[in-house]
Design a protein around this nucleic acid. Structure first.
Length: 254
DNA sequence: CGGCTTTGACCCGCGC
DNA sequence: GCGCGGGTCAAAGCCG
């Protein structure tokens, strides 16, 4: 850019000045087009890698990674699974057992269970009188920053409409403390908006021994490490992040 | 005053 | 049959 300015400065005042400006402009437009096409190629590669990663996760670690995107639609999540487990990150210092999942819950019990010093809270869905859905919420023993919520049953109604509105406008407040919805982020990993354990698996998929879990965790770490080492993936990821930031809607002007 | 949370008591299933 | 642990009930208290 500096060189272009220097070249143009030398020709300032001469008859060919306008012609030089036009040539430089055309050259910049060509470079811009080339960069744009490169960016599209990288974005495409990033999407392919991301999809391949999700496919790989679903096929190799069905008990751990199923339903990675379920947090996008909590109503769909619970309709699809009559029993699922969800990890939710809480605010630092937040000692409450409230999982903000878009529904209204009535707490009906609390117990201190064996092997976990943190109490377990029991909730029933309070949005309709006949809704059979229950959930158990307990702080994760390994990382107390996370709450582990286990859902049982299927909702016979939709998400609270006021809550749904709050989902689309994160800055607005919900009507009740327990109906606010917040998309959790695990370990600051952009590929893991939240982890859902599908407990409806049949046969061998249901097994959950400690060695099996450790093996799956190891494979995930290896896979993520290999992706992180790939310079093409890093560049594509940065390009995709920049793209997503550029595509965000502008805030309404006052 | 109604709705919600808390919390101790009770129930039930399971393993020994 | 007994003990243990998880799940549920219901009365009391709290709060808007």
């Amino acid at each position: 850019m500096v060189k272009i300015a220097q070249r143009l400065e030398k020709k300032r005042g001469r008859p060919e000045f306008m012609e030089a400006v036009r040539e430089e402009l055309e050259q910049l437009q060509k470079e811009n087009e080339a960069l744009k096409s490169m960016f599209e190629v990288m974005s495409s590669k990033y999407r392919m890698l991301h999809e391949a990663y999700l496919r790989e996760s679903n096929s190799q670690f069905p008990t751990v990674c199923r339903g990675l995107t379920r947090f996008e639609r909590p109503d769909v999540q619970l309709a699809a699974a009559s029993c699922s487990q969800v990890f939710v990150e809480t605010e630092p210092g937040d000692e409450s057992l409230i999982v903000k999942d878009g529904y209204q819950w009535r707490k009906y019990g609390q117990k201190v269970t064996k092997n976990n010093p943190f109490p377990r809270a029991y909730f029933k869905c309070a949005m309709t009188s006949g809704c059979p859905v229950k959930k158990k919420v307990q702080r994760c023993l390994e990382d107390k920053a996370f709450l582990m919520a286990t859902y049982q049953g299927q909702h016979n109604h939709d998400v609270d409409p006021t809550t749904r509105q709050s989902l689309s406008s994160p800055g607005s407040s919900a009507t009740t403390r327990t109906s606010e919805f917040r998309v959790p982020v695990l370990n600051n990993n952009p590929f893991r908006p939240g982890i859902t354990l599908d407990l409806n698996l049949s046969g061998s998929n249901r097994e959950n021994s400690s060695t099996d879990v450790k093996y799956k965790e190891k494979r995930i770490e290896e896979y993520v490490a290999s992706l992180a080492k790939d310079p093409n993936f890093t560049v594509a990821l940065a390009a995709a992040v920049a793209s997503s930031m550029a595509e965000q809607p502008k805030p309404p002007t006052p």
